[in-house]
Design a protein around this nucleic acid. Structure first.
Lengths: 202, 202
DNA sequence: TGACTGACTGACCGACCGGTCGGTCAGGAC
DNA sequence: GTCCTGACCGACCGGTCGGTCAGTCAGTCA
C-alpha cells in the first residue's frame, strides 16, 4: 500500500504550509502552529508527511516542477531570449504570491535541510531552473541578440532583480507586479543589448 | 553607571553574532550556540545585551550607520548618479562578506522583531539607506542623466541585483565581487540611460 | 455482522529554547 | 586589609520544539 501522492487534506496542508513558510521561514514556522492553521492535529500532519523537512521539500519540489513546466512550454513557443524570459516571468508573476516567493525560499532556507536533502534539492533547483535561464541567456548571446557576457553571472543578476518582489515586506513598494516586471525587463535587456562592450565579462 | 557602548568582549560578541546571524538567520541561531562560539557563557551574553532582539538590533544598526557614512561621504565627492552609486557599492562590496549580507538580513529578518523595534528599525533603514539611494537616482533622472522612470521601483531593482551576492550559497557563483559589480552597474546604467522610453513608468 | 483499513487524535517524550538567578572573583580605591 | 564593582559563570526556570505512539472511529467489503 503506497501512500497516495494527493488527497484533499494533504493538498490543504501543502497550500497552508506554503503560505506560512513564506511568511515565517523554515525554522520560524512550528508544526504546532501549522497544524492549528490547517485545522488538524499535529499528529495528523505526520500521517501525511514523514517529517518537517519532507513537507518543506515537497513544497519546494512541487513548485519547482511547475516552473520547469512553464520554462519548457516557453522554450517551444518562443525563440528570442527576451521573449522567452518575458513570457516565463510573466507566467511566474501571475501565480499566487506565496508560490512566487518559493524562488526566494529555495535560496534562503535550503541551508536548514539535512545534507542529503539539501544536495539533491540544490541539484534539482540548479538543473531545472537556474541552468535553464542561463541557457536561454547564453543562446541569446550566441545568436547576437545580447552582447557577450558571462551568462551565469547575468542569470543571477536577472533573478536578483526580482528578489525584492518576493519579500512580503517590499512587495507593496514595487506596486503592480506586471508593471514592475516591465521595468526589470527593460532595464536588463536594454542594458544587455548587443552592440556595446561589457566591462564585467570574464 | 551607564553601560559602556564598547568593550573587547562586547565587540567580539557582535562580530561573531554578525557572522552567525547571516549564516543561520535570526530564529536559526540560538543564544547557546552563540555563547559557545564566542567562548563565553550564555549568561555572559546577557550581561552585555538585554536580550536576543537587542543584540540583533545592535548589529543591524551598527552596520546601517556605517553604510550611511559611506553614502554621505560619497554624496559630497561625486555629483553624477552613476559615479555615486558605483562608489557607494564598491565601498560596500569591499567590506567583509558578513557585513555586506546585513543589507539582506535587514529585509529578511526584521519580521521576527517585536512591533516597536521593527517599526523603528524599518524607519531607520528606509530613511538612511533606501531613500538615499532613491534620491540619488531621482536626481539622476531630474538631471537628464537617466531616463524618466519610477525611482522607487528602480531602487529596488538595483538593490535586488545585488541580493544573490549576499547569500553565502550563491556568492561563490558570482565570482569576483568587483567584477560582478561591474556587470550590475553596466546593465543597470546602460539600461537606464537617458534617451529611451520606459515601458514600466507609473 | 464482523473484520479490516485509511485518516486522524490526545497524551506524551527528550531536547532545546530565551531568559534569570545567586554566586564568584580579579583588581582598583581607600 | 576591606570594600566595591565590573565581568562573568553554573544551575535552573517555564515553555516550546520536532517527533512518536496507542488508540479511535467512520466507512468499505465479505
Amino acid at each position: 500500500m503506497t501512500k497516495p501522492s494527493s488527497s484533499p487534506t494533504r493538498d490543504h496542508i501543502l497550500a497552508v504550509a506554503t503560505r506560512l513558510f513564506v511568511e515565517e521561514g523554515y525554522v520560524g514556522l512550528s508544526m504546532r502552529r501549522l497544524a492549528q492553521e490547517v485545522g488538524v492535529s499535529k499528529a495528523g500532519l505526520y500521517y501525511h508527511f514523514r517529517d518537517k523537512e519532507s513537507l518543506f521539500l515537497a513544497i519546494l519540489t512541487q513548485n519547482l516542477l511547475e516552473i520547469e513546466r512553464i520554462i519548457q512550454e516557453t522554450r517551444q513557443q518562443e525563440t528570442q531570449a527576451r521573449a522567452r524570459i518575458e513570457r516565463i516571468f510573466r507566467a511566474i508573476f501571475s501565480r499566487p504570491p506565496e508560490q512566487q516567493a518559493i524562488i526566494r525560499l529555495a535560496s534562503q532556507e535550503a541551508g536548514h535541510l539535512r545534507e542529503a536533502s539539501r544536495r539533491s534539492f540544490r541539484a534539482l533547483y540548479h538543473q531545472k531552473f537556474i541552468l535553464e535561464i542561463q541557457r536561454i541567456l547564453q543562446e541569446g548571446i550566441d545568436a547576437g541578440e545580447l552582447r557577450p557576457m558571462d551568462a551565469r553571472r547575468a542569470t543571477w543578476v536577472l533573478l536578483g532583480m526580482m528578489y525584492p518582489y518576493f519579500y512580503p515586506a517590499h512587495r507593496a513598494e514595487m506596486g503592480d507586479p506586471q508593471e514592475a516586471l516591465d521595468m526589470m525587463l527593460t532595464l536588463f535587456f536594454e542594458g544587455a543589448r548587443a552592440g556595446k562592450k561589457e566591462k564585467g565579462a570574464s
